[in-house]
Protein backbone atom coordinates (compact mmCIF):
# COMPACT_ATOMS: atom_id res chain seq x y z
CA UNK A 1 0.00 0.00 0.00
CA UNK A 2 1.41 3.37 -0.87
CA UNK A 3 -0.84 5.91 0.66
CA UNK A 4 0.19 9.42 1.43
CA UNK A 5 3.51 9.50 -0.36
CA UNK A 6 4.22 13.18 -0.66
CA UNK A 7 3.38 14.42 -4.09
CA UNK A 8 6.38 16.53 -5.01
CA UNK A 9 5.30 20.06 -4.16
CA UNK A 10 5.13 22.56 -6.92
CA UNK A 11 7.06 20.46 -9.38
CA UNK A 12 5.82 20.96 -12.93
CA UNK A 13 2.59 22.30 -11.55
CA UNK A 14 1.12 23.96 -14.59
CA UNK A 15 -2.37 25.33 -13.92
CA UNK A 16 -5.00 22.95 -15.28
CA UNK A 17 -6.46 23.87 -18.68
CA UNK A 18 -9.96 25.32 -19.03
CA UNK A 19 -11.30 22.06 -20.45
CA UNK A 20 -9.80 20.12 -17.56
CA UNK A 21 -11.27 22.53 -15.04
CA UNK A 22 -14.74 22.29 -16.57
CA UNK A 23 -14.48 18.52 -16.49
CA UNK A 24 -13.45 18.65 -12.83
CA UNK A 25 -16.29 21.03 -12.01
CA UNK A 26 -18.83 18.71 -13.64
CA UNK A 27 -17.42 15.80 -11.65
CA UNK A 28 -17.57 17.80 -8.41
CA UNK A 29 -21.19 18.82 -9.07
CA UNK A 30 -22.13 15.20 -9.68
CA UNK A 31 -20.44 14.16 -6.44
CA UNK A 32 -22.23 16.84 -4.41
CA UNK A 33 -25.64 15.86 -5.78
CA UNK A 34 -24.85 12.17 -5.25
CA UNK A 35 -23.89 12.95 -1.66
CA UNK A 36 -27.22 14.64 -1.01
CA UNK A 37 -28.98 11.63 -2.53
CA UNK A 38 -27.16 9.35 -0.07
CA UNK A 39 -28.17 11.59 2.84
CA UNK A 40 -31.81 11.50 1.79
CA UNK A 41 -31.62 7.74 1.35
CA UNK A 42 -30.50 7.40 4.98
CA UNK A 43 -33.50 9.40 6.20
CA UNK A 44 -36.38 9.17 3.72
CA UNK A 45 -39.14 9.79 6.26
CA UNK A 46 -38.11 13.42 6.48
CA UNK A 47 -38.82 13.85 2.78
CA UNK A 48 -42.34 12.55 3.15
CA UNK A 49 -43.06 14.64 6.24
CA UNK A 50 -42.10 17.75 4.34
CA UNK A 51 -44.68 17.01 1.68
CA UNK A 52 -47.49 17.23 4.24
CA UNK A 53 -47.59 21.01 4.30
CA UNK A 54 -48.11 21.58 0.56
CA UNK A 55 -50.58 18.72 0.57
CA UNK A 56 -52.64 20.47 3.25
CA UNK A 57 -52.60 23.73 1.32
CA UNK A 58 -53.89 22.04 -1.76
CA UNK A 59 -56.59 20.05 -0.01
CA UNK A 60 -57.86 22.49 2.60
CA UNK A 61 -57.17 25.94 1.18
CA UNK A 62 -57.84 24.80 -2.38
CA UNK A 63 -61.14 23.13 -1.60
CA UNK A 64 -62.46 26.02 0.47
CA UNK A 65 -61.65 28.67 -2.13
CA UNK A 66 -62.99 26.53 -4.98
CA UNK A 67 -66.33 26.47 -3.27
CA UNK A 68 -66.29 30.19 -2.48
CA UNK A 69 -65.54 31.19 -6.09
CA UNK A 70 -63.89 34.24 -4.55
CA UNK A 71 -60.91 34.34 -6.89
CA UNK A 72 -61.32 34.89 -10.65
CA UNK A 73 -59.15 32.38 -12.49
CA UNK A 74 -60.45 32.72 -16.06
CA UNK A 75 -60.93 29.56 -18.05
CA UNK A 76 -59.58 27.18 -15.40
CA UNK A 77 -60.97 26.05 -12.03
CA UNK A 78 -59.44 27.39 -8.83
CA UNK A 79 -57.85 24.02 -7.99
CA UNK A 80 -56.24 23.94 -11.42
CA UNK A 81 -55.01 27.46 -10.93
CA UNK A 82 -53.72 26.68 -7.45
CA UNK A 83 -51.80 23.45 -8.18
CA UNK A 84 -48.81 25.11 -9.91
CA UNK A 85 -48.81 27.72 -7.15
CA UNK A 86 -48.53 25.03 -4.48
CA UNK A 87 -45.77 23.30 -6.45
CA UNK A 88 -43.84 26.56 -6.43
CA UNK A 89 -44.62 27.10 -2.75
CA UNK A 90 -43.21 23.71 -1.80
CA UNK A 91 -39.99 24.62 -3.62
CA UNK A 92 -39.82 27.95 -1.81
CA UNK A 93 -40.29 26.37 1.62
CA UNK A 94 -37.55 23.78 1.04
CA UNK A 95 -35.13 26.63 0.65
CA UNK A 96 -35.46 27.46 4.35
CA UNK A 97 -34.16 24.00 5.10
CA UNK A 98 -30.93 24.69 3.19
CA UNK A 99 -30.25 27.89 5.07
CA UNK A 100 -30.70 26.15 8.41
CA UNK A 101 -28.58 23.22 7.22
CA UNK A 102 -25.70 25.49 6.26
CA UNK A 103 -25.82 27.27 9.61
CA UNK A 104 -25.76 23.91 11.34
CA UNK A 105 -22.86 22.76 9.19
CA UNK A 106 -20.99 25.92 9.95
CA UNK A 107 -21.48 25.49 13.69
CA UNK A 108 -20.37 21.88 13.55
CA UNK A 109 -17.44 22.58 11.21
CA UNK A 110 -18.56 20.26 8.40
CA UNK A 111 -18.47 23.12 5.94
CA UNK A 112 -14.68 23.49 6.28
CA UNK A 113 -14.31 20.08 4.68
CA UNK A 114 -15.82 21.55 1.54
CA UNK A 115 -14.10 24.92 1.69
CA UNK A 116 -10.64 23.43 2.12
CA UNK A 117 -11.07 21.26 -0.97
CA UNK A 118 -9.89 22.50 -4.37
CA UNK A 119 -13.48 22.71 -5.64
CA UNK A 120 -14.20 26.31 -6.71
CA UNK A 121 -16.64 28.15 -4.43
CA UNK A 122 -19.10 28.61 -7.29
CA UNK A 123 -19.12 24.84 -7.79
CA UNK A 124 -19.73 24.23 -4.08
CA UNK A 125 -22.68 26.63 -4.10
CA UNK A 126 -24.09 25.36 -7.39
CA UNK A 127 -23.74 21.81 -6.06
CA UNK A 128 -25.81 22.78 -3.06
CA UNK A 129 -28.41 24.42 -5.28
CA UNK A 130 -28.70 21.38 -7.52
CA UNK A 131 -28.91 19.14 -4.46
CA UNK A 132 -31.89 21.12 -3.29
CA UNK A 133 -33.72 20.09 -6.43
CA UNK A 134 -33.75 16.48 -5.21
CA UNK A 135 -36.02 17.58 -2.39
CA UNK A 136 -37.92 19.90 -4.72
CA UNK A 137 -38.61 17.13 -7.20
CA UNK A 138 -39.70 14.64 -4.56
CA UNK A 139 -42.19 17.13 -3.12
CA UNK A 140 -43.40 18.06 -6.58
CA UNK A 141 -44.11 14.40 -7.24
CA UNK A 142 -46.25 14.19 -4.10
CA UNK A 143 -48.16 17.38 -4.99
CA UNK A 144 -48.82 16.26 -8.56
CA UNK A 145 -49.97 12.81 -7.47
CA UNK A 146 -52.27 14.41 -4.95
CA UNK A 147 -53.70 16.75 -7.58
CA UNK A 148 -54.34 13.77 -9.84
CA UNK A 149 -56.00 12.04 -6.91
CA UNK A 150 -58.26 15.06 -6.46
CA UNK A 151 -59.07 14.81 -10.21
CA UNK A 152 -57.62 18.20 -10.98
CA UNK A 153 -57.27 18.29 -14.78
CA UNK A 154 -53.60 18.90 -15.64
CA UNK A 155 -51.63 18.44 -18.84
CA UNK A 156 -49.26 15.63 -17.96
CA UNK A 157 -47.67 14.96 -21.34
CA UNK A 158 -44.01 13.96 -21.36
CA UNK A 159 -42.78 17.32 -22.68
CA UNK A 160 -44.86 19.13 -20.06
CA UNK A 161 -43.43 16.96 -17.27
CA UNK A 162 -39.87 17.46 -18.51
CA UNK A 163 -40.53 21.19 -18.50
CA UNK A 164 -41.85 20.93 -14.93
CA UNK A 165 -38.64 19.13 -13.89
CA UNK A 166 -36.52 21.92 -15.40
CA UNK A 167 -38.60 24.62 -13.68
CA UNK A 168 -38.47 22.84 -10.29
CA UNK A 169 -34.70 22.33 -10.55
CA UNK A 170 -34.21 26.03 -11.33
CA UNK A 171 -36.60 27.18 -8.61
CA UNK A 172 -35.04 24.92 -5.97
CA UNK A 173 -31.55 26.14 -6.84
CA UNK A 174 -32.65 29.78 -6.87
CA UNK A 175 -34.40 29.84 -3.51
CA UNK A 176 -31.96 27.57 -1.66
CA UNK A 177 -29.10 29.78 -2.85
CA UNK A 178 -30.98 32.85 -1.64
CA UNK A 179 -31.43 31.09 1.68
CA UNK A 180 -27.71 30.26 1.93
CA UNK A 181 -26.88 33.90 1.20
CA UNK A 182 -29.02 34.98 4.14
CA UNK A 183 -27.49 32.23 6.29
CA UNK A 184 -23.94 33.36 5.57
CA UNK A 185 -24.90 36.92 6.51
CA UNK A 186 -26.77 36.28 9.76
CA UNK A 187 -24.87 33.21 11.00
CA UNK A 188 -27.14 32.22 13.89
CA UNK A 189 -30.14 29.95 13.68
CA UNK A 190 -32.44 32.23 15.67
CA UNK A 191 -31.79 35.24 13.47
CA UNK A 192 -32.04 33.13 10.36
CA UNK A 193 -35.46 31.82 11.31
CA UNK A 194 -36.67 35.34 12.01
CA UNK A 195 -35.40 36.70 8.73
CA UNK A 196 -36.45 33.54 6.90
CA UNK A 197 -40.08 34.18 7.84
CA UNK A 198 -39.69 37.82 6.97
CA UNK A 199 -38.53 36.92 3.47
CA UNK A 200 -40.55 33.80 2.69
CA UNK A 201 -44.01 35.07 3.56
CA UNK A 202 -43.83 38.22 1.41
CA UNK A 203 -42.33 36.19 -1.44
CA UNK A 204 -45.27 33.83 -1.21
CA UNK A 205 -48.08 36.34 -0.83
CA UNK A 206 -46.64 38.93 -3.21
CA UNK A 207 -46.74 36.44 -6.07
CA UNK A 208 -49.28 34.86 -8.37
CA UNK A 209 -49.15 31.56 -6.43
CA UNK A 210 -52.62 31.65 -4.87
CA UNK A 211 -54.34 34.51 -6.71
CA UNK A 212 -53.80 36.20 -10.05
CA UNK A 213 -51.92 39.48 -10.35
CA UNK A 214 -55.09 41.08 -11.70
CA UNK A 215 -56.78 41.16 -8.29
CA UNK A 216 -53.77 42.64 -6.50
CA UNK A 217 -53.78 46.29 -5.44
CA UNK A 218 -51.80 48.29 -7.97
CA UNK A 219 -48.91 48.99 -5.56
CA UNK A 220 -48.34 45.28 -5.05
CA UNK A 221 -48.18 44.34 -8.73
CA UNK A 222 -44.68 45.71 -9.40
CA UNK A 223 -43.48 43.85 -6.30
CA UNK A 224 -44.93 40.63 -7.66
CA UNK A 225 -43.29 41.25 -11.01
CA UNK A 226 -39.91 41.66 -9.30
CA UNK A 227 -40.48 38.42 -7.40
CA UNK A 228 -38.80 35.35 -8.91
CA UNK A 229 -41.53 33.12 -7.48
CA UNK A 230 -43.99 34.73 -9.90
CA UNK A 231 -41.91 33.51 -12.86
CA UNK A 232 -41.69 30.00 -11.43
CA UNK A 233 -45.47 29.87 -10.94
CA UNK A 234 -46.06 31.30 -14.40
CA UNK A 235 -43.78 28.69 -16.00
CA UNK A 236 -45.46 25.84 -14.13
CA UNK A 237 -48.91 27.13 -15.12
CA UNK A 238 -47.97 27.32 -18.78
CA UNK A 239 -46.67 23.76 -18.65
CA UNK A 240 -49.48 22.16 -16.65
CA UNK A 241 -52.42 24.27 -17.90
CA UNK A 242 -51.91 25.00 -21.58
CA UNK A 243 -55.28 26.76 -21.85
CA UNK A 244 -54.89 29.14 -18.93
CA UNK A 245 -53.68 32.66 -19.59
CA UNK A 246 -50.08 33.39 -18.64
CA UNK A 247 -48.13 36.53 -17.82
CA UNK A 248 -45.12 35.85 -20.05
CA UNK A 249 -43.98 33.33 -22.65
CA UNK A 250 -42.32 30.24 -21.16
CA UNK A 251 -38.91 31.27 -22.51
CA UNK A 252 -39.06 34.54 -20.59
CA UNK A 253 -40.04 32.79 -17.35
CA UNK A 254 -37.23 30.23 -17.61
CA UNK A 255 -34.75 32.88 -18.73
CA UNK A 256 -35.50 35.00 -15.66
CA UNK A 257 -35.10 31.96 -13.39
CA UNK A 258 -31.75 31.03 -14.99
CA UNK A 259 -30.47 34.61 -14.81
CA UNK A 260 -31.41 35.13 -11.16
CA UNK A 261 -30.01 31.71 -10.16
CA UNK A 262 -26.65 32.42 -11.81
CA UNK A 263 -26.48 35.85 -10.22
CA UNK A 264 -27.31 34.51 -6.74
CA UNK A 265 -24.79 31.68 -7.16
CA UNK A 266 -21.99 34.18 -7.70
CA UNK A 267 -23.12 36.33 -4.77
CA UNK A 268 -23.32 33.29 -2.52
CA UNK A 269 -19.91 32.01 -3.66
CA UNK A 270 -18.38 35.34 -2.66
CA UNK A 271 -19.96 35.10 0.81
CA UNK A 272 -19.50 31.36 1.33
CA UNK A 273 -15.94 31.47 2.71
CA UNK A 274 -17.34 33.39 5.69
CA UNK A 275 -18.83 30.10 6.79
CA UNK A 276 -15.38 28.81 7.81
CA UNK A 277 -14.16 31.87 9.71
Amino acid sequence: MSLPVSSDPGAGAARPSVARRLEEAAGQLAVLVGYEARKLAHDPTELLLRAVQPALWLVVFGSVFSVLHAIPTGSVSYLQFLTPGILAQSVLFIAIFYGIASIRERELGIITKFLVSPAPRTVLVAGRGLSASLRGLSQATVVILLAVGLSVPLSLSLPALLGVVVAIVLGSALFSTLSMIIASLVRTQEKFLGIGQLVTMPLFFASNAIYPLSIMPSWLRPVALANPLTYLVDALRILLLPHASSLFPLGVDLGVLVGVTVLLTFVCAALYPRMAQ
Binding site: E24, G27, Q28, A30, V31, L32, G34, Y35, R38, K113, F114, S117, P118, A119
Partner: peptide, 11 residues
Protein backbone atom coordinates in the same frame (compact mmCIF):
# COMPACT_ATOMS: atom_id res chain seq x y z
CA UNK B 1 -19.57 8.18 2.16
CA UNK B 2 -17.69 10.93 4.00
CA UNK B 3 -14.47 9.95 2.25
CA UNK B 4 -16.21 9.31 -1.04
CA UNK B 5 -17.41 12.92 -1.31
CA UNK B 6 -13.92 14.18 -0.43
CA UNK B 7 -12.36 11.95 -3.08
CA UNK B 8 -14.78 13.40 -5.60
CA UNK B 9 -14.09 17.01 -4.64
CA UNK B 10 -10.36 16.33 -5.09
CA UNK B 11 -11.14 14.97 -8.57
Amino acid sequence: ENLWVSAGLYS
